[in-house]
Design a protein around this nucleic acid. Structure first.
Lengths: 254, 254
DNA sequence: GCCTGCTGTTGACCTCGGTCAACCAAGCGA
DNA sequence: TCGCTTGGTTGACCGAGGTCAACAGCAGGC
């Protein structure tokens, strides 16, 4: 698995947008063949990051948007006191860096969770191309909007009280994204630490650890360090809806 | 206060973007005078909403973006079971509706918290103008990006454990936004219910109520139903940093 | 090999905030 | 004027999840 991934990386590095395996998931989705080659020209760098490598830091001047080509990253913010909040984990095909559009500086940090390759889309050039290709402009807006919707989902998750439900939703979301990438959605590789997961969900690491154990006892998962196998997707889906078939109402707004 | 706001509304309704009081806060910020008049043409409707009036629902086809001109709104999502999560409260100058860009349908609902007037920006026309005016295109991206950054702030807040800290941050954020609007940031009018505040923060209404009482006892606030006066902005700022000068470390990610 | 440090797991304990319930004040229609 | 409803406050209780602590399993350095 690890091995074949490396081979794949090398192949990807040689390719262009037009023939990239992520074509339908990435910015090019829905763009005509001819326009695609123009987009190709803007993709300057295909950067490699090692585990722990930083793509951009909070405060860095905005230069480009980035597409995850292989591997995975986390994005997070830190306050003055050093408290961290993880905003998201990013798999291949996902675009990051939008937060910098607002103020020309990044408002978060992006860090590789494993060896990852990144496509860099210099914004100046991207803007040039989008102004010439309206479909791409629309597509870019779509992608940013997806980001907003995704954050909504994160908020809803954190707003719920049941920790088990939160973890279930997190795993389900990862599984769904694996399948979009044609990977086996039942065999997850958690490239992020338990600390990262806990932070992302607004819990502490002990709680997350206990939840993994409990879900294993329930026969939902098989947990082996970073490797998590979903044995009973049906039960996992139930847990996402609060553990019991009948939905439970919460502190609904007036 | 109520009275003068109404007078202002009528004035605003007569005005165009070029002379709108929100000019510098809204989409037109940083756009040249001549380009502004073209934007003016796209602002079709100036809708009025009564308290509880719905601007758009989850699933509605995407037609336009909306600028709050006066009043205030809340946006929220609801799952199948009817659980609600409030995503944000929106004051004049703020633009909503971006969530629909991703899939051509709104993924949330927007509802007026009081009598509010709204500028409607039909997306088809807006797109036309942005393609002709690159600065406006850039500005639109900026605004969406602000939305992303704002959601990050919301996430950070919900990820913290101290309920009191959350409410302090919420009030501080409202005060800051009041001042951007040239209003008195110490005299807040909470147009949303306690239930809405609780839901927004991921708490229950009783907790919010207790926190208001506690902050009043501490001499930070003066609470009178919907009217909240910030007596000690310095103390409020302290509460935002956990209530004590020295920052406390939390479940920071590895 | 052996030490050291980091990540993850498990247990015991306790606290913050959720739950349930009673009650009050304001708004509204009859 | 009186109910009735809705929104908000306060109290008593309790449990989910946070805290503290001990320890196991690996990985890296030498």
């Amino acid at each position: 698995m690890e091995h074949s991934a490396n081979v794949l990386d090398l192949n990807l590095l040689r390719r262009s947008c037009s023939s990239c395996a992520l074509n339908e998931l990435c910015l090019p989705a829905g763009i005509g063949r001819d326009d695609l080659t123009r987009l190709d020209g803007t993709v300057r760098d295909k950067r490699m990051l090692e585990r722990g490598g930083v793509l951009y830091r909070d405060g860095d001047p905005f230069k480009a948007l980035y597409v995850v080509r292989s591997g995975s990253l986390k994005t997070f913010v830190q306050n003055e006191a050093g408290d961290t909040q993880i905003l998201g984990f990013h798999l291949p095909g996902e675009i990051i860096g939008f937060d910098a559009l607002a103020s020309d500086r990044h408002a978060s940090q992006a860090e590789a969770l494993e060896r990852s390759s990144i496509c860099e889309l210099p914004y100046a050039q991207l803007q040039q191309v989008t102004s010439e290709v309206p479909a791409l402009h629309r597509q870019l807006m779509r992608v940013i909007s997806r980001e907003v919707v995704e954050e909504h989902r994160h908020l809803v998750m954190m707003g719920r009280q049941q920790a088990q439900e939160q973890l279930a939703i997190f795993l389900k979301s990862l599984a769904d994204r694996y399948e979009r990438l044609q990977r086996d959605g039942a065999a997850l590789t958690l490239t992020m630490s338990r600390y990262d997961i806990a932070n992302y969900l607004g819990l502490v690491v002990e709680t997350v650890s206990r939840l993994f154990s409990r879900m294993e006892e329930m026969g939902v998962l098989e947990v082996n360090r970073k490797a998590v196998r979903i044995l009973r997707p049906d039960l996992l889906a139930d847990l996402c809806r609060n553990g019991y078939p009948a939905g439970s109402r919460r502190n609904d707004a007036s």
